[in-house]
Amino acid sequence: MSTAISVGDAFASRRPPSMASNTLCIARRELRDALKSRWFVLYTLAFVVLGLAVSFVSAAGTGGTGFSGFGRTTAGLVNLILLVVPLMALTAGAATIASDRERGMLAYLLSQPVSPVEVLLGKYIGLGASLLAAISLGLGACAVILSWRGGVSSPQTILWLAGLSFVLALGMLSVGIMISSLTRRASAAVGVAIFVWLTLVFVSDLALMAGAVALHLRIDELFALSLLNPLQVFKMWSLHAIDANLDVLGPAGLYAVEEYGRSLHAIFAVGLSAWIVLPLVVASVVLARKSPL
């Protein structure tokens, strides 16, 4: 066996691209791919059409304030966002790394001067930007219809909804990417993502209600448990941001406003931020330590 010689100066002087450069390069690629993807177009179309339907029907009715001063249009939009945005973000995140791994693209990408964290962040930023585009398109169309029909939702309300929807989307995208990093097959990853979506949207509400009855949970315990579900946090935060009270949520909402007052914004922000950061950290650890193959 021979001895290795030292590398020449020409090669030693070459430096790998910075983390920011690689991350943005991958993000741009991911954004372009997402905007061309059939699923993304379908989700966005569905969001726009349903949002328009909700806005149109609400504005065509009384248009006035409904229960507790909270506009029926806003209530409809919040519920629509709760269904569509998490599904969109979870499935987009779940498909990305697992499908690249499945077709050998992840290993090929990582055989370039690129680190696993750069791949992860690039994909996250690219997909996040595509979700922002979808949300802006959906809620933007609703805003146009509402202003045309003289609906009650103010531009500020729509902006709050759009901002909070985007934060929710980022949280769900993180969870999707974490699922993707832990799964070898794209189909399995998307399956798990849909299961998580069903759990967050339907099962957790039922479990909370059942738990409250069966375990005689106190109101503060109920509120604390509801903070574990990012969809509940989004719902409470939107209602609180738009209407400044949570009467529509019943005793738990009244308790939250009375107990925490203005610090509720911070509590909700921490709750949703945790759903953004923690799954991403898990995904980056998994990707860096586990074989990408």
Binding site: V7, F11, R14, R15, P16, Y108, S111, P113, V114, S115
Partner: peptide, 10 residues
């Protein structure tokens, strides 16, 4: 690894 892979075409 990133710097090492700069030297490799795969």
């Amino acid at each position: 690894g990133k710097a090492a892979r700069m030297l490799i075409g795969y």
